[in-house]
Simulated scan of single mutants.
Amino acid sequence: MPGMNKRPYDDRDRGQAYKKQKHDDRHSHDKHPGHARPQHRDDRDNRQQGAKQSLTHDEAIARLPPPTTALGPVPSYTPFTVPAALPPLPDVQDGSLTTAPFRHKSTANYNRSSNADDVTYEKLEFLGDAYLELLASRLLYARFPNLLAGQQSQLRELLVKNETLAEYARAYSFDKRVQVGDMERMMQDAKDRGNKGFNKILGDVFEAYVAAVVLSDHEEGFAVAEKWMTALWAPKLLEAAEKERYFTPSHSLQHADHTSNPLKTYSPTAKAELQKRVLAGPGAKLEYEPYQKSIELKGDQLGQNRHFIGVYLTGYGYEKKLLGKGEGKNKVEAGNWAATEAMHGEAKAVVQECEEKLKIAREERQRQKEAKEDAQVKKE
């Protein structure tokens, strides 16, 4: 539309002046403390090697599994190029909402009747919270469709919790833009409640900004916010997904060597596949049992449990032979990881041996069946 500011997500011709400004903006992040890139932990293998750095946002979004579920069309706009440090902050197109995400109700002569239309971050964060839940849900539903609902919920909580949003708010220097009538008292209240109190404030401000981005452009606002948050969430989501070895069946997460590793690819049918490969003969059985007590996790995963399950084979000349171990948020997940290790880990030769014996036994049964049928025909 004429007169509207161009956004970093727009693919329309901007001319050389905009390209120069975009180049300058990219490098300006390093000049301001508030624009420091978020730090993400290297995975265990990288720490052991001591050589590789955390993924940048553009690298992480390139390594996310591609969407496997269509969620409906959104208005056309360019899939923007993500800088190495931080995705560009979308503009708030509506001038009346430019400062609203940072304005506390105490900055105006506020009362519930006369100023009910005042837009403050308290009002906007209500809507922004819902948008972020929806954006995170769409991202996980489209790119990790085979996760259990509980697993998707846990990942979504990681993406939308106050600590995560406060981290992003600081990265964009939102903490320097908050407007409060009595900032000193508000900061003291937050200090009294610990870092969690100030994180709540910054989390609300970030939610409010997301709402302002969507509301300020009725045609493209939601699409712009979705592209922005997908890029912003990508490193954190990829780190969590690789840590938990989440996957999509047809597009497994690729690791440093760019090869698919079956030991790092979760299959919800692993137990059934193992059973099909080794169980058929009389006396043969697989048993899934805990090899250590479950534990309750802490930190970001507070309230979640970790289960430890081993799979043991009896039959084919073995007695309670340990084939594999697995860990998971529940016994089913841990059992599937144990079966995966059985088929692709150190004991895979045992599984292959049993499978071969099973094949021979089946062929022998088939031969005996055919011989019996031939004898019956001759007798008749």
Rank of each mutant, 00 (worst) to 15 (best):
R112K: 08
K19F: 04
D374G: 07
S267V: 02
K22E: 12
Q93L: 15
N199R: 00
R193D: 15
F308R: 01
H29V: 07
E125H: 03
N5H: 06
V213A: 02
D30M: 14
H32G: 01
A208Q: 06
A85N: 07
G303P: 06
L202Q: 02
P2V: 15
K200N: 13
Q151Y: 12
T81M: 08
F126R: 13
K271N: 03
L279Y: 00
L86A: 04
L55P: 01
G128T: 06
Y288I: 03
E287T: 10
K19I: 04
F308M: 02
L232I: 09
P290R: 03
T107K: 12
W337Q: 01
P268M: 05
R362W: 01
D192K: 01
Y9N: 08
H35A: 15
Q21G: 02
T265P: 00
P38S: 09
S250H: 12
G281W: 00
H29I: 00
L147Y: 06
A256D: 13
V178K: 05
G317A: 09
A166W: 01
L155P: 13
S250R: 14
Y288T: 06
K379R: 12
L302E: 13
K379V: 07
L237N: 06
M1P: 15
V74G: 12
H307W: 15
E219L: 12
V205W: 05
K264F: 02
L64T: 06
N111A: 05
R7E: 09
K200G: 14
T98P: 00
P262N: 07
A225S: 08
H23D: 15
A270G: 14
T248A: 13
K22F: 11
L358G: 10
N162I: 02
V213M: 11
T98G: 01
V178P: 03
P73C: 00
P282K: 10
T314A: 01
K191G: 02
A284T: 11
M4W: 06
D45G: 09
E242K: 15
A130P: 00
E363I: 03
P282E: 08
R14M: 07
Y316F: 14
M187R: 10
H32K: 15
A190N: 05
Y141I: 03
R306N: 04
A171M: 10
F222P: 04
E273A: 15
F102V: 10
E327K: 10
E287R: 03
L97F: 13
N195G: 06
